[in-house]
Design a protein around this nucleic acid. Structure first.
Length: 580
RNA sequence: GCGCCCGUAGCUCAGCUGGAUAGAGCAGCGGAUUUCUAAUCCGCAGGUCGCAGGUUCGAGUCCUGCCGGGCGUGCCA
C-alpha cells in the first residue's frame, strides 16, 4: 500500500528525533485542494510542540531526510503552517487505477472481514397494514448495508422480524371481523383501538363476495418457502363468523396476517429488498424460547418478582428503571419476546448483529443491550442504528401519518409515483441520523432534477460513447498502463484521483455504517466525468494514443459507477430517454 | 425534569472522524451547442457553520452551558 510506504519512510526519519511507531499516529489524507498534492500529513504540526520545534522547520527537515522511490512519489513539498504534501507519480496513479479495475485487485483486498457471519435486521414492521414510507428509508439503508458488509468480506444476512403474535395482531383480527360483520349487515362496534385503514374494508368486502375463492387465492399467493409458517385458517369466512368470538377473531387475524404479509413481501420485492430470513415471533412462542430466555436470566440473577410481575434489572445497565418481562396477569411483554428473539439470533451463530430501528425506539436500546449482556453475550454484540424520522411534504405541508387512523402514504404509492430508484437514492444521499424532509411534489414532478439521474446519465453517456467507438471500428481494449500513460488533461487526472478512492470509500461507508457516502461519492464521480467529457471534446477524433487512454479511462469510470450503483441498489442503464 | 437526535447559502443536504480559502444540487443572474446524449459544462452572486465560552499550533467537527426544533421517557407494541 502507498500509505504504508509513506508511513515507513516517515517513521525512518522520525527515529532520529526519538519518536517511534507507538508514539504517534501518522495521518495521511487527501487534501481538499488539489494544488496541495495527492496526500498530505500533519505530522510536523503534531510533533512540533512535543519536540519544541517550529512545525514548518521540522517539516522541512523531515522532507529533506525522506527517501522515497521516485516512480511512486514524484515530489514532497512543505506548505501552510507545516503540512508535508506528497504528489503521487502519475505512473503510480495509473497503477492504482488498474488496481480498481482488476477483479483480483483493490476490491478483493478490502474483503478483510474473514467471512464472519453478521445479521442485519431492518424494517420489521408490524404486519397490521401495508408498508408505509417510513419503511422505505430503513429498506434502502438496510439492504445497502448488507451489500456493503458483503463487500468488505462479511457473510451478511438480511432479516425481517414479524410480530405475528400479541395484541396488535388480535386487534387486527377484531378490526377485520368487525368490518366483515358490518358489511354483512350486523350492528357491531368497531374496536376502540382498531385499525381504520381502508384496506381492511376492502379485504372484508372481498371475503364477503368471494369467500372461499378469496381464501384460496390468498393462500396460493402464499405458497412460498419464506412464509410456510402462516397457514390459512380452516373453513370459510362464513364458518369463522359463527365461531365463538375468541376463536373467530383468531381466524380473521390469520387471514389478515396472510394477506398483509403478502403485500409487505411484494412491496419489498418491488423495492429490491431480499431477505434471507423472515423470522416469526410465533415461532418463539411455539419453541418456548421466551421461557428459556427467562430461565436463563433467572439463573443469572438478573430478574426478580414484585407486585406479581417479573422484572428485569435493567438499572444495573444504566437504564432509568427496571422493566417488566412478565405482567401480573402472566402475559409476557414485547420486551421479553425481543430478548428471546435476539438471544436466539445469537444462538444461530451470528458473530455480530445490527438492528435498524426508528427514532421512537431509541429509549429501548439500553435495556435491550443490557439484557444481552445479562445473558452472557459479549458487550457490543448487538449494535443498534437509529434511522431518524422522515417528514413527507406535499404541497409544502407535512403529511401526518398514523396506521391506526389509516392515514399514511404507502411505500407502494411512493414506488409508483416517484420510482424505486429515485426513492432509494434520495434516502441514501442523506446520513442516517439526520431528520429528513422528503418533498413528494419535487420528487414526482421534477425527477429530471434528481441527482440519481446525473449518475445514471453519466453511465449511459459512457455506454453511448463506447458504442459509438465500436461502431466506428475503434478498439479500446482492456485498460493497461501503457495506454493510460497517455492521459494528459487536468480533468483526466482529477477523475483518476477520484476513481482510485473507491476502495477507501467502500471501506469507510461499511465501517461507519454510513452508506450515504456511496451516493455522495457517486455524484462526485459523475460530475468529474462530465467535466472531463465536456473539456476533452471529440474524443473519438483524437490521435490514437490519446483516444485510447481516454476511452479506457471511460471504461474504468463506468466500472466504478456500476459498482456504486450496485451497492446502492439502483439500476445502471445503458441508455436514457433524451429530454426534448 | 431526564435521555437521545438535529441546527451549515433562499430551499434540500454534504463536509472523507481535528487541517490549509466551508462545498454540491435546486432556485437567481450571465455565458458555451457545425458534437461521440446540453439530463452537460464555465462564470457571477449567495455564509456570524444556532449563541457563548473552553480544549490546541489549528474547531463546522471535540468538551461545557444556553437557545430553537424533533423524538423518547408504559405491567403499549
Amino acid at each position: 500500500m502507498l500509505e504504508d510506504l509513506l508511513r515507513k519512510g516517515l517513521l525512518g526519519v522520525l527515529e532520529k528525533y526519538g519518536v517511534f511507531e507507538e508514539d504517534v499516529e501518522i495521518e495521511l489524507e487527501k487534501p481538499r485542494d488539489r494544488s496541495h498534492g495527492d496526500l498530505s500529513t500533519n505530522l510536523a504540526l503534531v510533533l512540533g510542540k512535543r519536540l519544541g520545534r517550529k512545525p514548518r522547520e521540522l517539516a522541512g527537515e523531515i522532507a529533506a531526510n525522506l527517501s522515497l522511490p521516485h516512480d511512486v512519489i514524484e515530489s514532497v513539498e512543505i506548505a501552510g503552517p507545516g503540512f508535508i504534501n506528497f504528489r503521487i507519480a502519475r505512473e503510480h496513479q495509473v497503477a492504482l487505477l488498474l488496481d480498481v479495475w482488476n477483479p483480483a485487485g483493490a476490491l478483493q483486498k478490502i474483503r478483510t472481514a474473514g467471512n464472519r457471519r453478521i445479521n442485519v435486521e431492518f424494517i420489521s414492521a408490524n404486519p397490521t397494514g401495508p408498508l408505509n414510507v417510513v419503511s422505505a428509508r430503513a429498506g434502502a439503508f438496510g439492504m445497502t448495508m448488507v451489500r456493503l458488509l458483503d463487500a468488505v468480506g462479511y457473510d451478511a444476512h438480511a432479516e425481517y422480524y414479524v410480530n405475528d403474535a400479541g395484541r396488535q395482531v388480535e386487534l387486527l383480527g377484531q378490526s377485520l371481523r368487525a368490518r366483515y360483520l358490518q358489511l354483512a349487515g350486523e350492528d357491531v362496534e368497531f374496536p376502540d383501538e382498531g385499525y381504520h385503514g381502508q384496506y381492511l374494508e376492502t379485504m372484508a368486502a372481498e371475503l364477503l363476495d368471494q369467500d372461499e375463492a378469496a381464501i384460496r387465492a390468498a393462500a396460493a399467493a402464499f405458497n412460498d418457502e419464506s412464509f410456510q409458517r402462516v397457514q390459512a385458517p380452516a373453513g370459510s369466512a362464513e364458518d369463522w363468523r359463527k365461531l365463538p368470538e375468541e376463536e373467530s377473531v383468531r381466524c380473521f387475524s390469520k387471514y389478515a396476517l396472510m394477506k398483509i404479509l403478502g403485500w409487505q413481501r411484494e412491496t419489498c420485492r418491488r423495492f429490491g429488498l431480499r431477505f434471507d430470513t423472515w423470522y416469526f415471533e410465533s415461532e418463539l412462542h411455539e419453541t418456548k424460547r421466551l421461557e428459556r430466555a427467562l430461565d436463563r436470566l433467572r439463573k443469572l440473577e438478573a430478574v426478580y418478582e414484585e407486585d406479581g410481575a417479573v422484572w428485569f434489572k435493567s438499572t444495573t445497565h444504566d437504564d432509568e428503571k427496571d422493566r417488566v418481562l412478565v405482567r401480573a396477569d402472566g402475559r409476557p411483554t414485547y420486551f421479553l419476546a425481543d430478548i428471546a428473539y435476539h438471544f436466539h439470533k445469537f444462538q444461530r451463530g451470528f458473530e455480530h448483529a445490527i438492528d435498524f430501528w426508528g427514532p421512537d425506539h431509541h429509549g429501548y436500546i439500553q435495556r435491550m443491550q443490557g439484557a444481552m449482556t445479562s445473558l452472557g453475550i459479549e458487550d457490543g454484540w448487538l449494535e443498534v442504528q437509529i434511522l431518524q424520522h422522515v417528514t413527507f411534504l406535499e404541497g409544502g405541508q407535512p403529511i401526518k401519518m398514523s396506521k391506526r387512523a389509516g392515514s399514511f402514504v404507502t411505500m407502494d404509492a411512493l414506488i409508483d409515483e416517484v420510482g424505486a430508484d429515485v426513492t432509494k437514492y434520495i434516502f441514501l444521499t442523506r446520513k442516517p441520523n439526520s431528520h429528513l424532509d422528503f418533498d413528494l411534489d419535487l420528487a414526482k414532478d421534477q425527477t429530471e432534477k434528481n441527482p440519481v439521474l446525473k449518475v445514471k446519465y453519466a453511465h449511459a453517456r459512457i455506454c453511448s460513447l463506447l458504442n459509438e467507438a465500436a461502431a466506428r471500428g475503434i478498439e479500446v481494449g482492456e485498460p493497461d498502463a501503457q495506454a493510460l500513460a497517455h492521459l494528459g488533461h487536468e480533468a483526466e487526472w482529477a477523475l483518476v484521483a477520484e476513481l482510485i478512492r473507491l476502495p477507501r470509500v467502500i471501506v469507510s461507508a461499511a465501517w461507519s455504517r454510513e452508506p450515504h457516502r456511496l451516493a455522495v461519492y457517486a455524484d462526485e464521480i459523475a460530475a468529474l466525468y462530465n467535466e472531463f467529457y465536456t473539456k476533452c471534446k471529440k474524443m473519438l477524433e483524437q490521435p490514437e494514443d490519446r483516444r485510447r487512454s481516454q476511452l479506457q479511462l471511460s471504461l474504468v469510470t463506468r466500472h466504478v459507477i456500476r459498482v456504486l450503483l450496485d451497492l446502492i441498489g439502483v439500476e445502471a442503464p445503458e441508455k436514457m430517454e433524451k429530454r426534448d
